[in-house]
Amino acid sequence: MAINWFKYSSPASFYSLAGKLTPLFSITAFILFVVGLYISFFVAPTDFQQSEAYRIIFIHVPVAWMSMFLYLIMAGWAAIGLAFNTRLSSMIATAIAPTGAMFTFLALWTGALWGKPMWGAWWVWDARLTSELILLFLYIGFMALQAAIDDPRRADKAGAILALVGVVNIPIIYFSVKWWNTLHQGATVSLTQSPKMATTMLTGMLIMSLACWMYSIALVLMRTRTIILERERHTVWVSELQGAA
């Protein structure tokens, strides 16, 4: 049985698939958020050092992970769109950028609110913080560049090149704590070593990360559907859709 990989690569067929998937991911995200928040505030114990301030970890780390993860996914789709000239791939990349920018802003925001009581400063020109700020500028630059070009297909190409150039920033962010070792602490969670966090704290953080992930998928699918409608408004299937509505 040969799988037809390209069944959902056309905007029209993807539109209906995304429509069916969106509620699935948004309900999962909602449930995971509720469970994650419950663990963060009512199950995870008080930290011996930071007392309650450490609870910011339950939002700071997930959004920071998502800001890097979403950029890689965006660059991936942009590369596919650039290489294969598939306009749906570029639409997905365009749809990811705002959510990625939001998570990057939240990573900086929650980090600053955690840094003030613990480090005594809202902002420090630390390697990790600075490279995360650059990531925010990359996201905004990507969106601005695409908005500045009228023809969507050319905007996709230009955005793809910018996104691919910016990919180098992601490992820099990730390893900045080790290479420069300025202020931000090193990686606490690793797939190889044994966990350095209390189990309930770690589970709470991982559930919140999954919740952010499900939320991103649901939201990007919704935004992609809107972009598909915007760009395909002159097609027959969209007018049929309107006729049916």
């Binding site: 309650e52 301030a53 910011i56 609110l113 009581p117």
Partner: peptide
């Protein structure tokens, strides 16, 4: 624990 502003702010 006294950090309400920072935690709730986040």
């Amino acid at each position: 624990g006294g950090y309400g502003f920072y935690v709730w702010g986040s």
